[in-house]
Nucleic acid binder design. Structure first.
Lengths: 133, 133
DNA sequence: GTATTAATTGAATATCTACTCAACGAACGT
DNA sequence: ACGTTCGTTGAGTAGATATTCAATTAATAC
């Protein structure tokens, strides 16, 4: 049994009382389940989305596209972020990969718009962070 | 006028037709407003929250605490993530700063639980990313 | 055809970040 | 008081990431 699990057993002994070994075993089992369900490696898709959003340039782009409510061209987006054209392209590429924006080519311009996922997340974030924090 | 804005004006000329200079100016104004509202520096609070969540260790901790629905002690959390005790402590500290978990000392144990903000965000993330993606 | 413009791609780099190690502080038992 | 255990803190480091520059593709104009 690992170091961590020994400490855990001490805590559970402390918490539940020494006489109820069955309860201790049951809670250890429950944690095993938690580990299986939530431990390293799970929830990767959400993590990709979070990583894409957790950057000033990319988050600004998503917020602008959500607020605009329509597709904007790269040249318009270039006006609201402070990176080179290349940096902007890299940023948009990351957002596409995360399913947060979609691109469409229109002649020699390229248009981007926010996906439903982006709309949902930005809305909730602005609400949850500004309101209850 | 900057490089980017020149390109933008060309796009708007193209989009709206050359004869309607007023419309072009109006859209440029609108984008100026967008830039003021969303440009660099705004939405920092949300970005802090996103940065806190966008890490495997921290996101796992938040998901476990949300799923548990009750406070868990550090020793229990240690069982579900794959970092040292010190790494775990750093992770929890970041989550507290972002308003995603709250800590309470109980004798020599320390208990952590998810805040409402964390519950909201995890719920929406799991829904939005698994369902419409 | 050539020139111009929009946008993307890849490589290089500078910065940031997550982790570990070592040392420390705080609570409890004896 | 002393030893033990829980947890945190700070420094150092290896690895990740965001950005820029240079080169390239694709579309339009002449």
């Amino acid at each position: 049994m690992s170091q961590a699990t020994e400490r855990l057993r001490r805590y559970l002994d402390d918490e539940l009382g020494e006489c109820r070994t069955e309860d201790v075993d049951r809670r250890l089992d429950e944690l095993g389940t938690l580990e299986a369900a939530f431990g390293t490696g799970r929830g990767e898709a959400e993590l990709d989305v979070l990583s894409a959003l957790a950057n000033e340039t990319r988050y600004t782009l998503v917020r602008v596209l959500v607020a605009a409510g329509e597709e904007l061209c790269v040249c318009e987006l270039n006006a609201v972020v402070d990176v080179t054209e290349s940096g902007l392209s890299h940023a948009l590429s990351g957002l596409v990969d995360a399913g947060l924006v979609e691109g469409r080519k229109d002649g020699r311009w390229k248009m981007y718009r926010a996906t439903n996922r982006a709309i949902t997340l930005v809305t909730v974030l602005e609400g949850s962070v500004s309101v209850d924090g």
